[in-house]
Design a protein around this nucleic acid. Structure first.
Length: 480
RNA sequence: GGUGCGGUGGCGAAGAGGCUAACGCUGCGGACUGCAAAUCCGCCAUUCGUCGGUUCAAAUCCGACCCGCACCUCCA
């Protein structure tokens, strides 16, 4: 039972709309995935994380989500790259698909329900093109097949452009064989040495846009709920998908079109063609993947997000604050409590605060997935927890209330795909006991007021990346 | 040229007609501490690109202007 009233910004209408799925309780999402000719860069990472968050939230509020993200593994850029590396194009693509999953996994991105590949859908793609040809939306010229945009009166409705605008703005040499400059390739004839598939028009390969029309309808139906991708895909990619799908099926393609904003470097768009891109891989070497994910969600998904080291570091500090609260809470609830009252004012206060915080998070997310606001609520959760712990908890009922707050806190944080449980796990028992020994020696020095030794131990451990914190409940250590 | 988005404290970023302009980072003061760290409490925008207008009321609506960015070509 879904009770949340979600609003989603629809690029098609340019407004936030009430989210009403095609089938009650179910959501079908198609997100344009990467062309796998290289490792993915940070710019590719944003839609991956953003739509993963959207999917998680939809699931959290009770929807059954079918999530499809394709891989473009047949493409000019792949062919070129393969030539350079002297390896078969499909093999190259397969390699980078594998590498893609390494990065996506690190960012805590859930696998799609299906990750379809172009190379595995040739029959369907050819049938799709053929269908368009039969309906008079496509024409063949010497082995190439084009979509005739003039046959589709609504062309331009997503990007809010008219065919006139497009004609006027055409910046490239127009292929004389096309009937209209905006006509685009559905099928491309193979040149010498290029990979090809047999088709009614001879040997060739699909155009870029047709794969998404074909695969989305195969897995989600002629009409589905959400189609997502980066802003730059609005035109021409998504515009063309709409033309293809709606021309063939005579039905609306997607009910909601969602587009994420760009990552910029020094306020300039990061892109492969500008050459100012950072490989996700390299960033992940420098920063905790959780920090990168947190950073990507710290701004609303439709706004541009500027990238630099200071900002990532600030995000890291913020995330640490969130993690500290979790740690302090865990410590507090594991402590032995003697008092056994039933309820008191403080307990009620914690319960009430938990409810309010939970509600505020949902409201933020319901407003077009406002993760920036949702994260602010998470910080308020952290402060609430820290305050409660700092005040001290003395009774069982308070512990129970704090546990409940903690449970909600962890739950909400997981909706964003953020993990708070940054334990010292993975350490050998040896490290644990060695540290226990060192701490004991230092405590001994402290009781003897030998602060020189105590400080020396603490400083040297810090150099090793281990932080000691003296608290009234004893000494605590953690990695920096 | 056409289309679209945006300009909020030192930085990042919410807010889209009316409670003291959230939240994070930084900085400053206080509590705690042997000193730290962490945490808590408090302070840091009389003002939201500029100029006009609408309104009892504007960061939020309207108009003009300035600045930045993106798309119109492969791009997430």
């Amino acid at each position: 039972m879904i009770t949340e009233a979600l609003k989603v910004y629809n690029t098609m209408s340019g407004k936030k709309e009430d989210f009403v799925p095609l089938k009650p309780g179910k959501v079908g999402i198609y997100v344009c995935g990467p062309t796998t000719y290289n490792f993915i860069h940070l710019g590719n990472g944003r839609p991956i994380v953003v739509f993963d968050m959207i999917r998680r939230y939809l699931e959290y509020i009770g929807y059954e989500v079918t999530y499809i993200q394709n891989f473009t593994d047949v493409d000019d850029k792949i062919i070129n790259r393969a030539k350079e590396e002297n390896s078969p194009p499909l093999q190259l693509a397969a390699k980078y698909i594998e590498e893609y999953f390494k990065d996506a996994d690190a960012l805590n991105v859930k696998r799609a329900t299906v990750h379809p590949k172009v190379s595995e859908h040739m029959e369907e793609i050819i049938a799709f093109v053929k269908g368009l040809e039969e309906k008079g939306f496509a024409y063949e010229v010497e082995g190439d097949v084009y979509f005739a945009v003039e046959r589709f009166p609504e062309y331009g409705k997503l990007s809010k452009r008219t065919l006139e605008d497009l004609k006027a703005g055409a910046r490239i040499d127009v292929d004389e064989r096309k009937r209209h400059p905006a006509d685009f390739a559905l099928w491309k004839k193979a040149k010498e040495g290029e990979p090809y598939w047999d088709s009614p028009w001879g040997k060739g390969r699909p155009g870029w846009h047709i794969e998404c029309s074909t695969m989305s309808s195969k897995y989600l139906g002629e009409t589905f709920d959400i189609h997502g991708g980066g802003f730059d895909l609005i035109f021409p990619h998504h515009e063309n998908e709409i033309a293809q799908s709606e021309a063939l099926y005579g039905a609306q393609m997607a009910r909601y079109w969602m587009h994420n904003g760009f990552i910029t470097i020094n306020k300039e768009k990061m892109s492969k063609s500008l050459g100012n891109f950072f490989l996700l891989r390299d960033i992940l070497k420098k920063y905790d993947p959780q920090v990168v994910r947190f950073y990507l969600l710290s701004t609303h998904y439709r706004s541009p997000l500027d990238f630099d080291d200071q900002k990532l570091e600030a995000a890291g500090k913020g995330l640490e604050r969130l993690q500290t609260a979790y740690r302090l809470m865990e410590e507090a609830i594991s402590r032995d409590i003697t008092g056994q009252d039933t309820a008191n004012d403080k307990t009620d206060r914690i319960k009430e605060e938990t409810k309010v915080l939970h509600r505020r998070f949902l409201d933020a997310m319901n407003d077009d997935f406002n993760t920036a606001l949702a994260i602010a609520v998470l910080f308020d959760c952290a402060r609430a927890i820290n305050s409660i712990v700092a005040e001290g908890i003395n009774f069982d009922s308070e512990i129970e209330a704090l546990k409940e707050l903690g449970k909600i806190y962890v739950e909400l944080t997981k909706v964003l795909g953020i993990e708070l449980n940054k334990t010292n796990s993975g350490d050998s028992a040896l490290v644990e006991s060695l540290l226990a020994l060192i701490i004991e020696i230092r405590q001994d020095a402290r009781t003897k007021k030998d602060f020189k030794t105590a400080d020396m131990i603490r400083d040297r451990l810090k150099e090793q990346g281990i932080l000691l914190e003296d608290t009234p409940q004893g000494v605590r250590w953690r990695y920096l």
